[in-house]
Design a protein around this nucleic acid. Sequence first.
DNA 1: CGTTCCCGCCACCCG
DNA 2: CGGGTGGCGGGAACG
Length: 831
Amino acid sequence: RGVLKTPLKQAATSHLVLAEIQPDCQPLTTPPKPKEILPADPWTPTSNLKMLISAASPEIRSREQRRELSNNANMVLQAKHCLQEHLLGDEYEKTQPSRKEKSLGLLCHKFLARYPDYPSTAENNYICLDEVAEELNVERRRIYDILNVLESLHMVSRLAKNRYAWHGRHNLSKTLQALKKVGEENKYTQQIQMIKKREYEHEFDLDGERNEDMARPFGSNENSEMSFVELPGMEFRAASVNSRKDKSLRVMSQKFVMLFLVSTPQIVSLEVAAKILIGEDQLEDLDKSKFKTKIRRLYDIANVLSSLELIKKVHVTEERGRKPAFKWTGPEVLPSIQDTKLETTSTTCPPPISEPIPSKEQCSKNLFPSRGKQNFTRHPSLIKLVKSIENDRRKIQSAPTSPVKISASTHQDFAAFPNEMAQLPAITKHKLEEQSKRANEMKMKLSGSALECGLSLPEVVPKPEPPLTAAAMQQPALTQPLSACPPSHSSVSPVILPHTPSGVSYTIYLHPSQAHTVTTYSPSFMLQPLPGANVTGIKNINSKVLNKITTEEGDNQIATDDVTNTLTTTERPTVKSETASQQCLKRSQTLQESHLIKRYRRDEENLDTSLTFFPSGYLIPFTQCAHGNKAGFLNKEKAGTCSLQHTTYSSPIAGVIPVTASELKAVNIPAFHITPLNIMLSPTSIAAAPVLSNSCLNSSNTSSASNPSSSVLNFTLQHIGLIPAGVQVPANPVLQHMVVPSQPENVNHSSENLQEGKVSKNTLQLPHWWVEWEPSVPKEPQEPQTATENFFRTPGGPNSVSSLSANPDGADRISQGTLYIPQRKLEVSED
DNA sequence: CGTTCCCGCCACCCG
DNA sequence: CGGGTGGCGGGAACG
């Protein structure tokens, strides 16, 4: 075995230059690759692999791949075709070892195919590095890459040198929860926001003066550094066997995952991720090469995560072209709840609805019922200490030796797969079955736990104590680092784009989460996602067929409703945790924060931000979606589309206008009728779409559809004086270029609650849900109470939204969505 | 050309 | 000192 390992390769690869010069030596370069040497392998590895991949996750796979896999024969042919694609006749040319066939992702697939997702605990699922490497025909180095990220997810654990234990996805849920938690504690959300914001700012001064906004690189995130997140119960082994466990790839992988779990539309762009991961270690200068390296590493990680089907690649289209990004496609991670029993393999019935555990501390305890040690995270401030300790330990307990010898069994394991190539079909099938089974299982779990999830969610728990709220609102000290927005910025990014030449088209950006990649036909007007706004995973199909998308994603209403109702009944009182986690001294303040407080803090921060940057922006909450809450997450799709964050905004000028982004998606404004104006969804609020909003979208779409949007828009525009009262902007794209007098159809269906306020009734139609809203958070005092504000405060039909009771907290509702005026468009598309 | 990322050198660490 | 790990970045393949 060791034979074909390094020696050959090295010889062949001696010098890169040489290799390049002598293409004919290629075969040697890839030693194990028995091109046509292996008669036993009629099928090209390519075809097999392709099938494997395609079959593995039909629903997730891209169309292209699906296209390819129509049938085996076809596939083979195509594979061949591919091979000979640029056929130049040369025999060496049709060598298969195309680069893609050696990709880490593929390798990972092969690797994963060897082990069951949920191995029976009794089994001896050991992994011998050497054997795997050999069987997969790769250098060990590559296996390390895979193992490292698998280890970061605790899907494997190191036993000894050359030996790992396979755990499969048993720990995945716990791990993800832990990661999410840590991610939250690290304020990744804010950091992301930060980065995006800065990016955004840059676009302003690109032509002109070099603003010294870059002064403070990062919001002095002292809390950056963080090492490997462990799962109690596994840590000891890892500790004793792993010398440098806080090493890049593993940690990086975890952080990367955290970013997904924390950010709302669960999409993370490589760029942002890299920046954050770098920025953390040290307030390093924006080193170019370092950045590059980071990206490279992220690709590696992303590849295996993709193989695990935890993420998938997408593209975030921005003004400056499209950037690579990844979207979370893994299981929705519920906030820390005790869920211990989920571990039992096979089809477990939905977990019993346990009592919600409001206390964060409790959650963590339950989550990791480990021995006292339980340190799944190390606070940055303690890292040094920990490190030194680890060093000692390292010296004391020597490292990776190979003590455990369970050879016999191990061998058997591998014996089962003498030639994985030959077995691929079988493996694939097996995988499929397993997966479908798991899928069902997952669904059950989700739906089952969604309830308890929601119940334990602080956000769901309304009625924040006035004092508490107030207090929470005043925590600038805690947030300043990240939220630090030099006042100077406010002038930099006014709503009215200074640099926008007249005659140029303007763009309205909407939150993709709701708007679903809004794009209009109008070349001049488009509804687009925001800059800071996270993007949703929206297929970038025809930017035309928006409604369709929205509709599609608006399913599952029934289930959602169910949950909602349940929640309504079982609503829990807020409980604030105070207990400090003794371990994190310095961090105590933060940790002690209940989620609730955290929310508010964040809200405040966000509010601050948006106010700072978009002073005159209109903030439009999705009141109608008030009933939305996390419990609504019943499936991944939704998760990806909806946000968890609840933020509160108040517009300094006009207060808050509830609106559904989806409804705005089609709004078009004739260029000649508006002055430079943007309506944007605040980056944060954008991320604040409640899960249940889908149902809202659904209903709104089905019935009067996008009418409200036009109403809102009209109102907004009129209020700002951009269009004369009495004039309405059609929501219909087709009419985009015309200004039409108020359309009767635009009258909201729920007009009973309509408030006419100061605006002409012709132009302003208030959806019933507008009325309900009542800010629970003090509005920006600076702005005198305007008619508009009063208007919005108007008490209205309370029962308009049935599920309102589920989330009585006004603040939450406000946060649902916000409108603001941006200047950049984002859009996600699948690869 | 930009993106993706494979390859393998070589620094560590440990026995 | 030899062997396992795995950081790291050149530069090739891909699109």
